[in-house]
Amino acid sequence: MADLGYRTFDSDNHYYEAPDCFSRHIESRYAEMAITASQRADGEWEVKVGDRPYNFMHVKFDKTNAPGSMYEMFKAKRDNPDLSWGDAYTTENMLPAYKQPDARLDLLDSQGVEWAILLPTFGVSVEEYMVDDVEQTYANLRAFNRWLEDDWGYVHQDRLFTPPLLSLLEREHAIEELDRVLEAGARIVHLRPCPWGGEGRSIADPYYDLFWARLNEAQIPVAFHISDLRYGDLAVRMGDDPAANVREMSAFQWAFLHGDRPIMETFGALLYGNMHARFPDLNFLSIENGSDWVHYLLTLMDKKKGMARFGPWPAGRPAGRMSEIFKQCCFVSPYPEDDVEALTDRIGASQVLFGSDHPHPEGIADPNSFINLIANRPEPEQRLIMRDNAATLFKVA
């Protein structure tokens, strides 16, 4: 374990869900629309979204691969082309800490981590399957959030912060569930990176102001974790499978349809939508979307704001440079393979969040070893990134 002399705030931790995370609390009238999981005779799981097969990722209910093992898997794949991602899964790797809050606190203690944002593994990847059905979407998100309240709670001992899943697919449903989870104690909420609502509007359209105003008043951060927005029509036009498993997507899909583009367009919509001026206590967190896109986005937005001076600004034209506004309300948790020091130079240490992605294979096995990515920064900047930025957002320091 990396010894920093203080305990940290990990902004990108994950749990593994129970098989009934969407079906346990589904309202009876929506039972046939539920996301369900059933175990086959061979021990593998079959997941359906209503009556549609789900295949975006291999779902891990009872076995997984080891934290930080992705690169070893890539090496093994080079030597054994027939190897599949699931070949590394074992039940021994599925620790109680990935399923239970008290066990997770014990694990964090052993890692030198004080606080963590805990996000779904499977749950963030299902909304795209339901975008054509408002009732199915919200019935399943409500059910998931109630499961989350059962198994983890939105806050556990003021150390684990687990965001409920929300959606702007339909305004009134969004506000109703937001009000419910805030009343239940949520301290952070999640929206998938997606620049539009479900009603032909930007998510920053004043039409949604009642939703954003509630978050602003409560000073609740909004997390955008990499999710399932896959731009299926473009994939088809490029000859790719729009429903490919995430581990089996083409290089074009990885590069242009998954990850960078959704979060750039989402932050672009929020910032051009003048959200910071309208809701100055709102903070937006990019979690596990990488950071290579940040420099390009800020340069692009500064330039195109000027080019659009004669265009429409439904919520008012933002005052000042977009790159400076970004630094006032947007936080980024980078990938461990990113140039984190360059990111810090671009947006400032105050806007960078340490995130390990533990216990996922693409994450860091020893979370606090993230410090090695910012080894050349002054110690006060390191502490901001490793602890104080997130602790301030959650008012726990």
Rank of each mutant, 00 (worst) to 15 (best):
Q328P: 00
D205G: 06
G185A: 08
E46Y: 04
G268H: 13
I374C: 04
D106E: 15
S227L: 08
P334V: 01
K77E: 08
L165S: 11
A342K: 12
A375C: 02
D209G: 08
N145L: 01
F211S: 10
Y129H: 15
T392I: 01
K395A: 11
P195Y: 09
M130N: 11
K395R: 15
H360T: 13
V352P: 02
A269L: 03
G50P: 07
L83Q: 09
R7C: 01
V340S: 05
A349L: 09
F22T: 09
K99H: 11
L210V: 15
Q253R: 06
H258P: 00
T91Y: 03
R180Q: 15
Y89T: 00
E381A: 11
F326I: 03
R104D: 07
F56I: 12
S291Q: 08
T90S: 12
L169Q: 09
R214F: 04
A213C: 05
T121S: 15
A2F: 13
D133P: 02
E27I: 09
L353W: 09
N80A: 02
Y30F: 14
L285R: 01
L107N: 03
P336Q: 04
D281Q: 15
D12I: 12
Q157V: 13
H190I: 02
G316I: 05
T90P: 04
L83T: 07
R192W: 04
M73S: 05
G50V: 09
G68K: 06
A251L: 13
R192Q: 11
Y207P: 14
P318F: 06
A139N: 02
S250W: 04
L298R: 10
